[in-house]
Design a protein around this nucleic acid. Structure first.
Lengths: 322, 322
DNA sequence: ATGAAAGCGCTAACAT
DNA sequence: ATGTTAGCGCTTTCAT
């Protein structure tokens, strides 16, 4: 299978390679008569020509690819919607989004695809950042400053999810408040951030720190662990919340009377649980769009736009609280 | 931010660019004395050199990137494990896996990254295949023959999942058997295949075709729709199954006594449901590994290996049947 | 209005 | 054992 090059198109159209390039990129300040234009376009179409990306990149010194590096954990519907919206927004500027799981097999992906920008679904190590810089990546998200904010626990969406959960329980006057952690090692980073948010909400309300417990996704174990609990519990996510609900059921108890339970992420199973699970959700599309806009701005050297609004997080009250 | 090139390394090491290239790719049948080798390696390390992918691709005429194109629907834990394992296996051969959502914003991704192979999480249109060929993609999965098999409903894993569900119910002597479909439009293709598998199992057992019903992920709706059902139901996936279970509960009925329910995918919520949900699961790691091996073989021009074994699909019996 | 030619960074065939 | 050199396919400056 031989590659069709711009030379082929030039020959077929009876013009030079330069002219082909001008037409196909419709270069500004270039006067091409309609006749030639059409000839070239027709030839390109007929031959099924598409410029070879590596050569184009090499010459122009930049790429139209944005790389999203995801942490090694399944993306639920939220993550999916985020990626989808991000890709859509980037596409409006001719940018293509590809993703990669960050299990770090082999060396950095950025070397393999030389993207214009890299967006992290998590924080990067300084070595990684350095490596990306050397690979010629122009824009890195989160930037050093953004990463620092997250590390200080001031800004991440995860933090605010934890906050919203606890705030909801506090508003309901539930007490004491506990925090149920996942046992999956891949979720520990996220859990730390969400927990920090919940702690913060308690502190601000003048309440004691929530007690924490690791709840595996196993009915028998969960039942054992929730024995004697009362008040309310913020679960790391909906799955952990379902485990708590199940543990409760095993004792013949139920939410919210015996224990108020709030989850996070609003997975489909949440609304179908017994009882339906109160949860916290995040406007994934909005976030995806925002990130994409940030990348686009940064790539064109513009100053970073305003921070995304705070109203992307919402409690969805259902029967497991209230 | 200036790019570090092999010229810089050559200068720093006091050798030619060719030597640098030889050392870094440790080219076979090239005798490089240890002394030079170390000098070059040290210089490269110190300067933080990494070869520029586009230039390398241009010269070698091939890429080390494999592109996985996913259909526009959230990947559960199964999809995630599959991708993860596939990436791991590919990495052992120096191949990097990147993924892309196939919502077809803009033109094909393959033009943007010129991958060595493209693997589809779904079928490609003939136009897409043609486009990929022209973009120089060497290996395409599914191949035309594989795609034809899937279209004939003979081979896809989805088909076999449906089959396994119905077979389990049949073995239990449950009757009649229904099939519960999802209402998410993004799942219709998959649903068709799984349903076909269930139909096939019924036919082979000499049973009538299962009646179908679309069950939205909403308790009230589900309750209305399952009213009067008896026997057993194969749900498209665990979420639909949870809706059925919820609908049953609303009538004060329960599985398996009033209706046997079997799901698919074994999402975490399945084992936490009331009652715990019988489901069908697939050995994602095994599949990911197989696909990767197929790609590796095809890239080296070898004949395609043997078909993956059939034992990657398993019923996990829990309380909602039996 | 169009073409000729240089060169992006890299590898590999061919010297030396 | 190492260096010289010719492109890979593309865009773009400069000439015509």
């Amino acid at each position: 299978m031989k590659r069709v090059t711009s030379t082929d198109v030039a020959r077929a159209a009876g013009v030079s390679r330069a002219t082909v390039s001008y037409v196909l990129n419709d270069s500004p300040d270039r006067a091409i008569p309609e006749a030639t234009r059409l000839k070239v376009l027709a030839a390109a179409e007929r031959l099924g020509y598409s410029p070879y990306a590596p050569a184009r990149m090499l010459r122009r010194g930049r790429s139209d690819v944005v790389l999203l590096v995801l942490p090694d954990r399944p993306q639920g519907p939220v993550g999916h919607a985020m990626i989808e919206q991000m890709a859509a927004t980037l596409a409006t500027r001719g940018l293509t989004l590809v993703t990669h799981l960050s299990t770090a097999h082999g060396p950095g992906v950025w070397n393999a695809i030389a993207p214009a920008a890299v967006v992290g679904g998590m924080l990067f190590t300084p070595e990684q950042t350095e490596d990306m810089r050397r690979a010629g990546v122009g824009v890195i998200v989160p930037s050093d400053e953004q990463a620092a904010e997250v590390r200080r626990g001031e800004s991440s969406w995860s933090f605010r999810i934890g906050q919203a959960q606890a705030a909801h329980l506090i508003e309901l006057g539930v007490h004491p408040i506990r925090y149920a952690l996942p046992d999956d090692p891949r979720l520990q980073d996220l859990a730390r951030q969400r927990l920090a948010g919940a702690r913060n909400a308690c502190r601000e309300a003048g309440l004691p720190e929530p007690e924490t417990a690791v709840i595996p996704l196993d009915l028998a174990e969960a039942a054992r662990l929730v024995d004697g609990w009362s008040g309310g519990v913020c679960a790391f996510n909906d799955e952990v919340a379902l485990a708590v609900l199940g543990g409760l059921r095993a004792h013949g108890l139920r939410a919210p009377d015996d224990l108020a339970v709030i989850g996070a992420d609003d997975i489909p199973a949440a609304r179908l649980a017994a009882p339906p699970l109160t949860t916290v959700t995040i406007d994934a599309g909005h976030i995806g769009h925002n990130v994409a806009c940030y990348v686009i701005a940064a790539l064109s050297g513009e100053p970073p736009g305003p921070r995304p609004d705070a109203d992307t997080i919402r409690v969805i009250p259902r029967a497991s609280t209230r």
